[in-house]
Structures are given as structure tokens and as C-alpha cells.
Simulated scan of single mutants.
Amino acid sequence: MNLAPFACHPANSKGRLHPEIAAPTRTDYQRDRDRIVHSTAFRRLVYKTQVFLNHEGDLFRTRLTHSLEVAQLGRSIARALQINEDLVEAISLAHDLGHTPFGHAGQDALNECMKPFGGFEHNLQSLRVVDSLEERYPAYDGLNLTFETREGILKHCSLQNAQRLEGQEPNGVGWRFLHKQQPSLEAQLCNLADEIAYNAHDIDDGVRSGLLTLDQLDDVPLFARFRDEATTEHPHLLGQGMQRRCLHESIRRMLSAQVYDVMDATREAINEYRPTDVESVRALPVLVRFSPLMREQSLELKRFLFRSLYRHPQVMEMTGNAKRIVRDLFAIYVDSPAEMKPAFAWKAQQGDDTVRAVTVADFIAGMTDRFAIREHERLSSERLMA
């Protein structure tokens, strides 16, 4: 592995919370990736919403397929920048492990429920999953991942939670939020690959669902440019029955342009700031970036998707029902912890109101969409989603 000096080298890792003997054939970041892939939380992602509920169609993205797409994009860019592909892959595969059922709707509802107890942040919950909630090893809770993977998972963090994390783990993953520093280039790359992936696949899923049309996308310069290129080079894509091919070719070109833009803009930033190692990266501005034009066009695409897809009446109907399911389940479990699975029920009854609420949030956040729907129907005798 030919890594740049500013890349994360496994031999220089800040290590694990619980020291372990090195594996004979794998680096620490490869072990992290493998532990994530074998985790229960990772398997649940296949039945967690991206935009469309899993039962609305077999071909829509889920949190699992989204995570795989982020990992693919991240590895491609990491290789070109000579930063650590294995670490990028581990962070990419783990970044959504703490996401609730029903996507952002479920997260927003659970955050509302948890406001009296500090709120709910899905990035922090992803860290909680790998640090505490997975139960696979006899000597410790969680997956015991390296500092660098855990740092990358914690993309955002409130000041209050960062202070709490710093109290539990001095100079740990909360430190940079208190001192306004950046994570590794590998973590920065995962943040941007996440954005590139969901913008592209939300276009694809939006058109597949019938909620978006190619004509609407002509108003989005970033997409329209590549659709025009595709149809100019392949005029038959404008013909009857060619919509899917036209869409896929346009998205493919758009993804490639964004990937190469990130490579070029990041190399330019690295040449300007000249980081010498990982620690110097932390003290600099974000280096993994779009060019200014691509950043503006990407933001314009995000605004279009928010306006035309995420706020579409059909999506909003699902959003309202999803929020109600989460709110109802939270209230029921807080009042009657015994309705949860035994391990959660026992834990909820061992502490004060905060312990109970956090335990209920852990239980709900770990649910798949379909399990949450079934639980709500069981406990309320009301079916909000078919």
C-alpha cells in the first residue's frame, strides 16, 4: 500500500479502547471493516429507509446499499489521493449504523422525544453502536474499533455531547469538536462521498418512483449538462423506452465528473497547505472538497431534491406516519418497558428516567422499518403503513 505521508497509516493508529494483539494477516483498519460487516447493526441496514420505505419497492436504495455506494466512491477517490482505502471503507460502511427506521423522519421524531434527555444524534448513535451496543465479544461491549474509524463515524457532534465524550475519553473522539479541528482526510472523504452518493441515487430512485421526471431535472444544471452530453453522443437515448438508459448514463457521467472534481480540488488544496502528517491535517481547513463551481452546483441539486422529492406530498405522507410511529412507540415503551425485548426491558428498569429514555431510544433506533411498523400495530392496534 503506497500511502502519502498525510494518510492514516495503520502502524501509527491511536489504537483501540481495549488493546489487542495485532492480526497476522490484516491491518487494524481491515479488521475494523470486517467487524462492521459482521455486526448485527450492519445487517439491519438492509431494511432501513433511505428515502422510500423498503416495502415500497425492491429496487429502491436502503441504508445498506447506500453505505456500499459510499464505500465504492470513497475507495476510488482514496486510491487516487494515496490515502488509506481500508479506513475509508470502514468508516463508509459504519457511518449510518445508528440511523433510525424511516430515515430522517424517524431521526427527527426520536430527537423530539429525547429533547428532555439531551436529544438524539444519529452520528453519535452510530458511535454508540460500535462502542457499546453491539454484543459480540466476551471481554468488552461494542466492536472495539480503532480511534481513526470511530473518529470518522462521528461526523457531527453537539458541544454538549462532545464535552461528555471528552469527560469519558480524554483526548478522544470528542476532542476535535471542542478545539474546532478537522478529522483525518479519510474521514473528510467519507463525508463528501456520502453527499455524492445520496444526491445521485436519490435522483435515480425519485425517477423510478415516478415522483420526479427527466423534464424536471432539466432545471438542474449539474444533471442537465450530463443528460445533454449523453443524448448528443447517443441520440437514440431520446427514443421511446430509453428513459432508464438515459437516466443511468446521465447519472454515471455526473458521478464521474464529481469524483474527478474532488480529486483535482483536493490535490490543489493539499499542494496549497502541504500537510506533512495526519496531525497537521487536523489543524488545517477541510482539504477534501469540491471546486467552487461544483460545490455550488451540488448545493443547487440538493435544494432541488429537497423541494421536489423530499417535500413531495407522497413522501410527506410517509414522513408524517413514520414520525407518529416513532413517537407512539417511545411513549409506550417509556410507560411500559416490559413491552421491549427482555435485555432492553431489564436495563430500562435499572436506572432513573434518563436511563429509561436512553434505553428506549437505543431500542427504537435499532429497529428496521418493518419491525417498527409491526410493533406499532401490535401495541396500538392501528396500522399506519401497508
Rank of each mutant, 00 (worst) to 15 (best):
G106Q: 04
Q72W: 13
A193K: 03
D131Q: 06
G118S: 04
E375M: 11
M114G: 09
N144V: 00
D328N: 12
L238S: 12
I83A: 02
R374M: 08
D28L: 04
I332S: 09
L329N: 01
A162W: 02
M242A: 07
A187R: 00
A361M: 01
H66W: 00
G103L: 03
T27P: 08
P24C: 06
M242T: 02
T266D: 02
T232L: 14
M242P: 00
L255V: 11
A94V: 08
G118W: 13
N144F: 04
S67P: 08
Q243F: 04
A230L: 02
V262C: 05
L222E: 03
Q314Y: 13
E268Q: 12
R324C: 09
A7S: 14
E268W: 14
V326E: 01
G98A: 11
L124Y: 10
T49K: 01
N199L: 13
F52T: 04
R208A: 06
H9E: 05
P285S: 05
A338V: 11
S256L: 11
N12A: 12
A11Y: 15
T276K: 12
H156G: 08
D86V: 03
E85W: 00
G142N: 11
N171P: 10
A80F: 04
E229W: 04
Q314T: 14
P10D: 08
I83M: 02
D86G: 08
R176I: 11
P101D: 05
T25H: 15
S132N: 13
L68W: 02
W346E: 12
S291Y: 06
T276M: 02
R227V: 05
Y140R: 13
D261Q: 06
N111D: 13
P138I: 06
R31F: 03
Q216S: 07
L293N: 13
Y29R: 09
R253L: 05
R289G: 05
F304N: 03
H122T: 05
V88E: 00
T368K: 03
E166Q: 10
A338C: 08
T231G: 15
D32G: 02
P235N: 04
A90G: 11
A257V: 04
Q107M: 07
A338N: 15
R35G: 02
H234Y: 09
D277F: 01
F52G: 01
G103W: 11
R303F: 01
T40E: 15
T359G: 02
L293V: 14
A348R: 03
Q243R: 14
L165D: 00
V334L: 05
R44K: 15
R75N: 03
V281N: 06
M318E: 07
F306K: 14
A357K: 00
G241D: 09
V259H: 01
S158Q: 13
R327A: 10
L299W: 06
L211W: 13
E186H: 06
Q50Y: 04
L384W: 01
V355Y: 08
A200M: 11
A331K: 15
E375Q: 14
L124S: 05
H95I: 08
V88T: 06
R370T: 07
A322D: 03
A372T: 07
G206Q: 10
I332W: 06
F344R: 09
E121M: 05
Q350S: 12
F177C: 09
A230V: 04
I373S: 08
E85H: 02
M1D: 15
A4C: 09
V281P: 09
L211E: 12
Q216H: 04
R267A: 13
R227L: 10
E20L: 01
